[in-house]
Computed example of a mutant assay.
Amino acid sequence: MLLTEVLINIGLGLCLGTIGGLFGIGGGLIAIPILGVLFGLDQHVAQGTALVMVVPNVMLALWRYNQRNRINWRWGGVLAIAGFCWAVAGASVAANLPADVMRYLFVAFLAALITYNLWRLYQPLSVQREMRAPRASQLALLGTFSGIAGGLFGVGGAVVATPVLTSVFGLTQVTAQGLALAMALPSTGATLATFAFHDQVAWGMGLALSCGGLISISWGVRIAHSLPDRLLRMLFCGFMALCALGLALT
Rank of each mutant, 00 (worst) to 15 (best):
V37H: 04
G77I: 04
G26S: 06
Y116M: 10
F23C: 12
L14Q: 01
I34G: 03
N66K: 09
A46S: 08
V37Y: 11
I34Y: 04
M53R: 03
W63V: 08
T115Y: 03
R70N: 11
S92T: 03
G20T: 10
A91T: 05
W63G: 00
I30A: 10
I30P: 02
T115S: 04
A112I: 10
I25Q: 10
A46C: 00
N66V: 12
G48C: 07
A91W: 07
V93C: 04
G36A: 13
V101M: 12
L118S: 00
G27K: 07
A112R: 01
I19P: 09
F106K: 11
T49S: 14
V88R: 10
G26V: 06
V107C: 12
T115K: 02
P98N: 07
L105T: 06
I25H: 00
Q47K: 09
V101Q: 11
Y65C: 02
V55R: 10
A50I: 05
I30W: 03
R64W: 06
G40S: 14
A82M: 03
G83E: 01
I81Q: 04
L79Q: 07
P33M: 11
F84Q: 02
W75R: 15
I114P: 06
A80L: 11
H44M: 06
Q43A: 11
V54Y: 02
W73I: 14
F84C: 03
P98I: 06
M53I: 03
R68L: 15
S92K: 05
V101R: 08
T115L: 13
I19G: 12
R70I: 09
A31L: 07
A31P: 03
G26M: 07
R64L: 14
A89G: 03
V78D: 02
T115P: 02
A87T: 03
L51Y: 09
N72G: 03
G76V: 11
G20R: 09
V58C: 13
I25E: 10
L79A: 08
R64V: 10
G21N: 12
V107A: 14
G36K: 05
A108N: 11
A112K: 01
L41I: 02
G77K: 05
A50G: 07
V37S: 05
F23A: 09
N66L: 10
F109R: 01
G83T: 02
F84P: 01
I30Y: 01
F39H: 12
F109Q: 04
F84K: 01
L14T: 06
M59R: 08
R74F: 10
V101S: 10
D42M: 00
M59Q: 08
Y116T: 02
